[in-house]
């Protein structure tokens, strides 16, 4: 558990981050979202003390971060940034093994861990271990960057716009990968982004920053349905709010008995995608299947009322 306790950072007397308090539960993803200059990156960098707080403190599992030397603290916290920041003169394996090496792990253990992570990120170790960053595609470089941040099984992973430099298709895949890996490893992740869509897709919780203050901290559904301020409402986007909300829930939430024509959709499909399919194929209801077995249907009316009831 990460407790951020009234943390403030002043630059020239003006607060960049102003008395922000927030608790991050273990094994969850919290997305910090805001415009540029909102203080979101400064907040993140105060957690591994790349920026020293002017006041307030951060506790990881109850221990204040000031209790450790800075570099020791940072070795316990994973850190991934936009543009990956890989060392161009080290191979993929050496890049991923950087923190374990700083921690003095034995070579065999580092090697095993590197291969394990490469497998996890669907990059066959035999093929990728000895390549240099310049020999990878942008998406691969970014995956190596995240793998490096996870290498020493850190208590906490901080990510600063990690997918900012990727094109939209690769970006979506990278987000899905991160979700999958986070579930598999049970990691605690704090991710900074300026993209509300990304925050809603990835975050178990979303924290919205504006002018150095934390204006709202809640589940994605709360942020969409009950924006705390006009700024949050604008970030969520008035017109698209119902669609964003629908994208959070699977069709299995609204499943009911009854007939439906045409091709079936899997039960994990989001309501948003189901709505889209209905409109595109001109149907009022879609059959739903789980593991190839038909288990019911979802109707256009049900989807509509779900979106209306929250709007």
């Amino acid at each position: 558990m990460i407790e951020i306790d009234r943390i403030t950072r002043l630059y020239d007397g003006k607060p960049a981050v102003d008395a922000v308090s927030m608790t991050v539960e273990t094994a969850t993803i919290t997305a910090i979202v805001g415009t540029s200059g909102s203080g979101k990156t400064t907040l993140l960098r105060m957690i591994n003390r790349l920026v020293e707080p002017s006041s307030g403190e951060v506790r990881i599992n109850g221990e204040p971060t000031t209790g450790l030397e800075k570099h020791v603290l940072r070795r316990r916290i994973g850190y991934a940034i936009q543009g990956h920041g890989l060392f161009p003169h080290h191979t993929v394996a050496r890049n991923i093994g950087a923190v374990p090496r700083l921690l003095g792990w034995p070579a065999e253990k580092i090697r095993a861990r590197v291969d394990e992570l490469l497998d996890l990120f669907s990059m066959p170790p035999a093929e990728f271990r000895d390549r240099f960053p310049a020999e990878l595609s942008g998406g691969q470089q970014q995956r190596v960057g995240v793998a490096r941040a996870l290498a020493s099984r850190p208590d906490l992973l901080l990510m600063d716009e990690p997918f900012g430099a990727l094109d939209p298709i690769i970006r979506t895949r990278a987000q899905e990968d991160l979700r999958r890996i986070q579930r598999a490893l049970g990691s605690t992740i704090l991710i900074v982004t300026h993209d509300m869509e990304e925050a809603i897709q990835l975050g178990d919780r979303v924290a919205v920053m504006d002018a150095g203050r934390l204006v709202q901290h809640g589940t994605p559904a709360e942020i969409i349905t009950r924006p705390a301020t006009a700024f949050v409402a604008e970030m969520v986007g008035g017109v698209e709010r119902p669609l964003r909300l629908l994208s959070l829930f699977p069709v299995s939430d609204l499943i009911q008995e009854g007939p439906a024509e045409g091709a079936a959709v899997p039960d994990r499909t989001s309501l948003r995608d189901a709505l889209s399919t209905c409109l595109w194929t001109g149907r009022d209801a879609l059959p739903v299947e789980r593991d190839g077995q038909r288990i019911g249907r979802v109707t256009l009316d049900a989807i509509r009322s779900r979106a209306e009831c929250h709007a």
Partner: peptide, 14 residues
Amino acid sequence: PPAALEAARGMGMT
């Protein structure tokens, strides 16, 4: 590259 240095600092290199 500045990003590599930032990463080096962030991962706890002295």
